[in-house]
């Protein structure tokens, strides 16, 4: 485990903590896309099927269980919690995420890492994660004001994949020495989707202004 990978995982974990903190303390999920959260549940469930077949480390098992558990918890809060669900910005969350699921699944069938059920699902989860943030970004663009916790949540989520890119570069030279097309290209796409958001996030931070994305 190198420092970029660990920093990436911790950033990912922190983004989830920030989101859960927002939901639990403010009892509000305003500005959060339920569609993106649904996609993450699907991403984790399809990627971590190897929990049953392969053991890497205690850290690995623990993190996988945390990601599955927290993503289901967030989904549950937004969908079923008596108070929280009333704050869901349903009308703004209009992205057709089923198209993403279908598109990624077809892509995974065409270009899987390997032709087996678990490997196709693993590839699907990589493709889907790359675009899962889209409904959230669209929702932010439609929101009048973006609260700090929501802004920080999305920033940390983007930073996580950017750190993974550094981790892959590091691992390529020190360890693996092989090109990993599927995660690399997907990871690049995933990070690139945040470019616009990063720009406005850093600007608002430097100017001490409220974060706002131009429509």
């Amino acid at each position: 485990m190198n420092v970029f990978r660990l920093a990436g995982d911790m950033t990912h974990l922190l983004s989830i903590v920030v989101l859960l903190l927002k939901i639990r303390t403010t009892k509000s999920c305003a500005g959060i896309s339920l569609k993106t959260q649904e996609l993450y549940v699907l991403v984790f469930l399809t990627r971590y099927l190897d929990l049953f077949t392969r053991y890497f480390s205690v850290y690995n098992v623990l993190m996988k269980l945390i990601f599955i558990g927290t993503s289901v918890a967030i989904f549950w809060y937004m969908r079923y919690h008596k108070v929280v669900k009333q704050t869901y910005s349903k009308d703004l969350d209009s992205f057709r995420h089923y198209h993403l699921i279908l598109g990624c699944f077809l892509m995974a069938l065409l270009i899987p890492f390997d032709f087996s059920v678990t490997e196709v699902l693993w590839t699907f989860s990589i493709y889907l994660e790359a675009v899962a943030i889209l409904p959230q970004l669209v929702l932010l663009q439609k929101s009048r004001n973006i609260d700090n916790l929501t802004g920080n949540y999305v920033f940390l989520l983007g930073a996580y994949r950017a750190l993974y890119l550094l981790n892959w570069i590091y691992r390529f030279f020190t360890e693996i020495h092989k090109i990993r097309w599927i995660p690399w290209i997907s990871g690049l796409v995933q990070t690139a989707l945040y470019a616009d958001f990063f720009y406005y996030y850093i600007q608002s931070w430097r100017k001490h202004e409220e974060l706002k994305l131009p429509a």
Partner: peptide, 10 residues
């Protein structure tokens, strides 16, 4: 498999 050894990632 080119990718098997790095499936330890999350």
């Amino acid at each position: 498999k080119s990718d098997g050894i790095s499936k330890d990632e999350l």
